[in-house]
Structures are given as C-alpha cells and as structure tokens.
Simulated assay, not measured.
Amino acid sequence: MKGSVRFENVTKRFGEVVALKPLSIDIAPGQLVTLLGPSGCGKTTTLRLIAGLESASEGRILIGGEDVTHLSATYRKVSMVFQSYALFPHMTVLENVAYGLTVSRVPRAEAQGRAEHALQTVGLTGFGARLPSELSGGQQQRVAVARAIVLEPEVLLLDEPLSNLDAKLRRHVREEIREIQQRLGLTAVYVTHDQEEAMAVSDRIIVMKNSEIAQEGSPFDLYDRPASAFIADFIGDANLIDVEVLSSDAETQIAYLDRRLTLPLRDVARGPAKMVLRPHHVRLSREAGPDTHPVQVSYAAWLGNSIQYTLDSPMGSIFAIAVPEPSPLRNGDTAHLHFDPADIRLVPA
C-alpha cells in the first residue's frame, strides 16, 4: 500500500462553485498517473487535494492506506514540483535541494549528503555550488525534482512541470523525469494540459472535463478506444464524421453520405454516431478509385518530417497528416481521399 493514492467520492467546493464533482480514483504504488484536461477541468484542484494544499469538502483521501483527509500538507508524505520551480535565488543549488531537510532539523552533514545524492540522481553532480541563475531552464527543473525527491516522499506531485521550457527541451526533460520516476519506483501524479506530454510519460491517464472524469486508461486505450467525441478529439486529434449505425453483430455496418461501409467492430449501438478518422490514417492520391472521396486542398503546411493538409470534402473539413513526397499537393489542388475501415472507430453522437 505504500505510495498508493485513493480518493473516495471526494468533492471540492469554493462557496457555491463546485470545483470538483464526486471523484473516486485509485493510483497503485509505483505508477505515474497523469491528470489531463483543458484549463478549469479540476486537475490542479485534484493535485492540491492530494498535497494537502486544499481540503476536501466531502469524501476521503488516503495515501499509503492512511486516511489523510484532515491532515495538513506538512504531515503528508508527498513532495511537489511546481510549474515555476520556486528555487531560492540567493541560495546555492545544494542549499536549495537541502532546504526541506534543513527546516525539518535534519543534521547538517546528513542533509548535505542526501542533497548531493539527490543531485547525482538527477544528473547534476558538481553543480551544488552554483546559483539557480547560472543554470539553464532544464537544469533548474532538475534541481526542483532533486529538492522534491530528497525528502523521500511516498508520492511525487508534478504541476505542469515543463510549461516554462521550449519544445525541444521539454521533450528531453520529460524523458529524464520519467526515467528518474521509474528508476526510484516512485508513485507520481502529473498534471498537464498537453496530451502529447501525457501520452509520453504516463502509465495511466485520467482525462478530466467539467470537474469530473471523462475517461481513464492507458495512453493506447484512450487513443485507440475513445469513449466520446471529446476524448477522440482531445487525445491525438480526430476528424469526426456523422454516420448512422445500421447493424452491429460480428461486424458493424454504417451509412454516411450516399455510402455504406462495413467495419470490423462489434457490439456498437444502432443509431446516430460519429466516425473517428485520425489525421495520419487519411490516404491521399491523385487518381480516383472505387472507395475514394474527392477533396480539394484548402491549406498545406510543410513541417519537414510531415505535411499537414486541410481538405474540403463531401464529409466536411478534413485534417490530414502525410509523409513528405517529392511533389506534394498544394493549395487549390484536387485529390482523392481514402482510408482503411480497420482504422475507423465509432463514438456516440
């Protein structure tokens, strides 16, 4: 049970405003679980409830099997990495990392030794004498992680930890955080609004919308088996096309436009639905075929490793991602769209 986190019907209200509807979650020891969602969905409130920085209006919070619902942040075995790093500018890196131990009255020699070990863990051996201003953004973030793990928490909390970094550095630091978390076997709860970041670091993702859980599961589950149009569009982008489910048994037959299509899906409810067509599943050709749809390129963007197209089609506007080719389509070109029925998923209308 050490390192587990459990919410039992936890609600948070600020006056008349319900910031978090009754929420029940279970996080197993050693897992990295990401709370993902748009601004205002309740993910940061959930993190602050785990940390003890907010108190629950109703329900119970357990950490490591212990009821901590009414326990202050000081007495919870959690550490938090903040979006702003919150390093003391007048202290050296070593002093910053050792600060939590110092205020807990750990003997100076022991605090310094543990701080040096934490810096070694995050790959910053030899940086202890520097000031935070002498470090890069990525190095400062690693100092913040070292300061959190030196306290030997049961749960590590990370609140938008990469939002202040540029895109390339963000990818590098998220890999380092994930490697440290796995190597130390830490339970971690990670908050972000960036779906790519969540998919890259998580064992499990909890997607939140309107102060409650919209869907939870592994990154693959959420991408390949979205439960709603919101999840399909939020996790990885999607073209959502109106269809009618005509029958469903061993296979599913749908109707859209003037066409019928059989999908290798089972047990789909009949009636209106949305067809989920991922941008990279869109295939474009210059020649028409028996299962193609005519399209016109309204926008083309060459991004080096891919080309992004916005297409006008009988199904509506379609977003497509294609591999670069010697003669790519250009704005105003006509083409023909097709896709593999095996790549299609359906969500409720």
Rank of each mutant, 00 (worst) to 15 (best):
N239V: 13
H293W: 15
P279A: 00
F234H: 04
A229M: 08
S313K: 05
S298I: 15
Q308G: 02
P294I: 05
D233W: 10
S228E: 08
L277E: 01
P279K: 04
G236M: 11
L257F: 15
P226A: 00
R260S: 04
F234C: 06
Y256I: 04
V245W: 15
D312L: 09
Y309V: 03
T252Y: 11
G304E: 06
R278H: 00
R278N: 02
V268C: 06
P272M: 07
S248H: 12
D312E: 11
D291N: 12
S313F: 14
I254D: 01
N305T: 14
L265G: 03
D221I: 09
P226D: 04
S228A: 03
K274E: 02
D237P: 06
T292W: 12
T310G: 05
D258M: 04
Y256H: 06
H280S: 04
S247R: 13
Y256C: 01
G304V: 09
E244Q: 15
P294R: 10
T310L: 08
I235G: 00
P226G: 00
T310D: 08
A301F: 15
A273H: 15
L246F: 15
L303M: 08
S248I: 13
G304S: 03
L284A: 01
S247A: 08
T262W: 14
H280E: 09
T262I: 14
P290S: 07
S285F: 06
P294S: 03
P294K: 08
R270A: 00
Y299I: 10
R225S: 08
G316C: 08
Y309P: 00
D267I: 07
I241G: 00
G236E: 11
D249M: 05
Q308N: 13
V245K: 05
E251C: 07
M315G: 00
R278Y: 09
G271V: 13
V295W: 06
Y223N: 03
G271H: 14
D237N: 14
S298T: 14
Y223R: 06
A229E: 11
T310E: 09
I231H: 11
L284E: 06
Q253R: 15
P264R: 05
A273T: 02
I307P: 01
P314R: 12
R278Q: 00
R225Y: 15
L311N: 02
L246Y: 02
R270Q: 03
T310N: 09
G271T: 13
E251P: 01
L257K: 10
L265S: 07
Q296T: 15
S285M: 00
R260Q: 11
L261R: 08
G304M: 05
L240D: 06
R286E: 09
V295N: 06
A300L: 10
D312Y: 10
V282Y: 02
S228F: 12
S298W: 14
A238P: 01
A255W: 15
I307N: 13
P226V: 09
L240V: 11
L222K: 12
N239E: 06
R225N: 11
M275S: 07
S248Q: 13
D249Q: 10
G316F: 14
D258V: 01
D312N: 14
P314G: 07
S247K: 13
R259P: 02
E287L: 10
A232N: 03
L263M: 07
G316Y: 14
G289P: 05
L222S: 04
A238D: 04
V295D: 04
A250R: 14
D242Q: 06
A288Y: 13
H293D: 05
N305Q: 08
V245M: 07
A229D: 05
R283M: 08
L246N: 03
